[in-house]
Design a protein around this nucleic acid. Structure first.
Length: 731
DNA sequence: GAGCACTGC
């Protein structure tokens, strides 16, 4: 067990943890009082009766009902639990950790004792833990090691309406697990029905699906008409306005609406939902410029852009209180819709659009992604409006007519229908299941399922019959995309695991490494235009020293190495060391968050390599004498041509489907779909350059109408033939 | 020459 350290900063003071005994008692009484006043508290006894008499329940609770914090405690206090644990899943890490802190406080214990949590890189639970908050991805991983989830007596899937891929897959698995643990059927993961379950040991499993929207009936039907229980919420009323006609230019409409509010309405901050960075920056400029022309005496406007890929210290501006008479105007992407709550918001302006990423399987498995601006759903619109009513009555201005709202789909399409299925298929194959035999709330198209299978076959993870190979089994151990775990396994043959591991770690970090300055600092500049170009030139110059001629993958390796060197010279957690690292990242226009996350991932992957080392034979990997040792490094050393060639060779085994050849008249053509023409994304170090063949992490089709290859490397001439002649093989 | 919503293992 590992104790949490990182979460304390976010929670601020925790008197119940550090105070005297008397103080603990006092805080606890206040908390108990708050608990008793929650809307769900009135029905607690009835709820427990329902939980006792039903295996599965659907709990439909509005925001502010207290369902997530209270239901696990009711179950714990009612004694229905027995010797097992309660798992409560969340789509997001912050939710899991902060809920654990809250519930531990209400229970009067420390996080990690009776109440704990588990998210990637961070966990706090022990032998005493009865309530465990965890991300849905974490429970999905646990399922691979323990297909009956035998540690748990009750599993609560919270925020089920968000329909994340992992929540959907868990729901499908839980149905089978319940049957198996009752002893009625075979073990759910023996799809072919060979074995009988030895399942009486862990007892029955209760499942509670929690949702905030209209999906309750669908969940209920899925679980054989499970009982639905409704819980009232507690939200302040939000008055909603629609425009009379549709708006062509939502940025301009948002600008005008903001100033109407600013001039006519009483104090309160304004939150504007926009699709992406570009619109946010453009609106930021216009609002700042008009605000500076307002007559003196009118309250000043503080404009706060807010999107996930913004540096952390700039994000913090959103949470800092304004001085008297100022009005904050937050320009945000979807990040403020669910992930983060911003205090002080009284007015919401909803453009009605967002950016949506979608994977298209395409013909012949030539998958590519789209990132397009499109209309939101009704539940998104309601969620956005609700952001104005967190602290008091609020107002929501929708920049579309009421008729347009009525035409919106009820909910957005579940992730399972929009993403690549390769990774999920690999996990299912490890449980001897697949998408064809799995009962799901929504089933992806056959073409999407087949494309996922084909990818795994080309990587050598499945054989021609679709059965899991030893390579596939080994790949599944790594919490990264199959393309990357495949490259990692290949690296043992070329003796460059250290290098490939670093690249895989940085690739799978969630935030990007390079920071592209937009107009971020333009608001306080007199000549925004020239300032922008200057900053961009600075960024390019700072980046130049990392560039590797072969392209983005080796460039990422150089960045990662430089950061590792920096850590060696100024390691430690001292204030000055941290400041030095932050300064270094800022000077080089790098996101420190991406680099620290990559370090965490590197550590995690190394640990998995360590557990596999020497056990290659047990995975059936060919030539068990070649170990997967993360210390093995290219003998010729960093910067050598041999190094780049070996590393790129490994990466290419993962990117076999992501190669393109240059045609004289049309730019680059993907080998999987020669009818298509693609460009190298402008963010790439290879943008505008010409090579015979390239490989890339991803193809992205955007509103500009072009398809771009992102994260691109040139394929060394010596191995171009490997690409077209590729046959799946095992490592 | 031109651009990358949000999560998660």
């Amino acid at each position: 067990m590992r104790r949490a350290g990182g979460n304390d900063a976010k929670e601020g003071k925790k008197p119940w943890k550090h105070g005297s005994n008397g103080k603990i008692q006092k805080v606890s009484e206040q908390l108990q009082e708050q608990r008793r006043n929650l809307p769900i508290a009135k029905g607690a006894d009835a709820l427990i009766r329902e939980i006792k008499s039903n295996d599965t329940l659907v709990l439909l609770g509005e925001t502010g009902s207290g369902k997530t914090t209270q239901v696990p405690q009711y179950i714990l206090e009612s004694g229905v639990l027995g010797s097992g644990m309660i798992a409560v899943t969340q789509p997001r890490r912050v939710a899991a950790t902060s809920l654990a802190a809250r519930v531990a406080a209400e229970q009067g214990c420390s996080v990690g004792d009776r109440v704990g949590y588990a998210v990637r890189f961070q966990e706090a639970y022990g032998p005493e833990t009865k309530i465990k908050f965890l991300t849905d991805g974490m429970l999905a991983r646990e399922l691979l090691a323990d297909p009956l989830l035998s540690k748990y007596s009750v599993i609560i899937l919270d925020e089920a309406h968000e329909r994340t891929l992992n929540t959907d897959l868990l729901m499908a698995s839980l149905k089978g697990i319940q049957e198996a643990r009752k002893g009625n059927t075979k073990v759910p993961h023996s799809g072919k029905g060979k074995e009988r379950a030895d399942n009486s040991s862990c007892g029955a499993l209760k499942v509670i699906i929690m949702s905030a929207t209209l999906d309750a009936e669908k969940f209920s039907r899925f679980f054989g008409n499970a009982k639905i229980i409704y819980v009232k919420g507690r939200q302040h009323p939000v008055k909603i306005y629609h425009t009379v006609t549709g708006q062509n230019d939502f940025v301009d409409a948002a600008l005008r609406t903001f100033f109407q509010i600013h001039v006519d309405q009483p104090p309160g901050d304004v939150l504007i939902f926009l699709p992406g960075q570009e619109d946010i920056e453009s609106l930021e400029k216009s609002i700042s410029s008009y605000a500076s022309q307002l007559p003196l005496g009118k309250s000043r406007v503080v404009v706060c852009p807010f999107y996930a890929s913004m540096p952390q210290d700039k994000q913090n501006k959103v949470f800092s209180p304004t001085t008297n008479g100022q009005r904050k105007c937050i320009l945000s992407t979807n990040i403020a819709e669910t992930s983060i709550t911003i205090p002080g918001v009284r007015y919401v302006i909803d453009t009605g659009v967002h950016k949506e990423k979608r994977h298209l399987a395409g013909v012949s498995g030539s998958g590519f992604n789209t990132l397009l601006v499109c209309a939101i759903s009704k539940s998104s619109a309601m969620q956005r409006a609700g952001r104005a009513g967190r602290e008091g009555p609020g107002f929501c201005y929708r920049l579309y007519p009421e008729s347009a709202f009525r035409d919106l789909p009820d909910t957005s399409e579940p992730e399972i229908m929009r993403c690549s299925l390769a990774s999920a298929t690999l996990r299912l194959k490890c449980l001897q299941r697949d998408f064809f035999d799995l009962e799901l709330l929504d089933k992806p198209d056959g073409s999407a399922i087949n494309a996922g299978m084909k990818t795994l076959w080309m990587l050598g993870a499945l054989d021609t019959e679709g059965n899991l190979t030893p390579t596939g089994r080994a790949m599944s151990l790594f919490p990264v995309e199959p393309q990357q775990s495949r490259a990692l396994l290949e690296s043992r043959i070329h003796g460059c695991t250290r290098e490939v591991l670093a690249i895989v770690a940085i690739q799978s970090a969630s935030s990007k490494v390079f920071y592209d300055p937009g107009s971020g600092s333009a608001a306080d500049s007199n000549e925004p235009g020239s300032r922008d170009i200057e900053r961009r030139d600075q960024a390019q110059a700072a980046r130049a020293k990392f560039i590797h001629i072969s392209g983005d993958h080796m460039t990422l390796l150089n960045v990662f190495r430089a950061y590792e060197d920096l850590l060696k010279s100024s390691g430690g957690d001292s204030k000055s060391a941290k400041a030095e690292r932050r300064d270094w990242c800022n000077r080089h226009f790098l996101h420190e968050r991406a680099l620290t996350e990559a370090l965490d991932i590197q550590t995690q992957l190394r640990r998995i390599c360590d557990t596999m080392r020497g056990r290659e034979a047990s995975f059936g990997l060919s030539d068990p004498n070649i170990e997967l040792d993360w210390r093995s490094s290219v003998a010729e050393g960093p910067g050598s041509t041999v190094e780049a060639e070996k590393v790129l060779k490994c990466l290419m085994t993962g990117l076999v489907q992501h190669g393109a050849l240059r045609s004289a008249e049309r730019g680059y053509c993907p080998i999987m779909d020669k009818s298509k023409t693609i460009k190298i994304h402008p963010s790439s170090t290879l943008a505008g350059k010409k090579f015979d063949a390239i490989m890339y992490d991803e193809l992205l089709f955007t509103n500009s109408g072009s398809t771009y290859a992102r994260c691109v490397s040139a394929i060394p001439t010596s191995i171009i033939s490997d690409l077209s002649a590729y046959r799946p093989r095992s490592t």
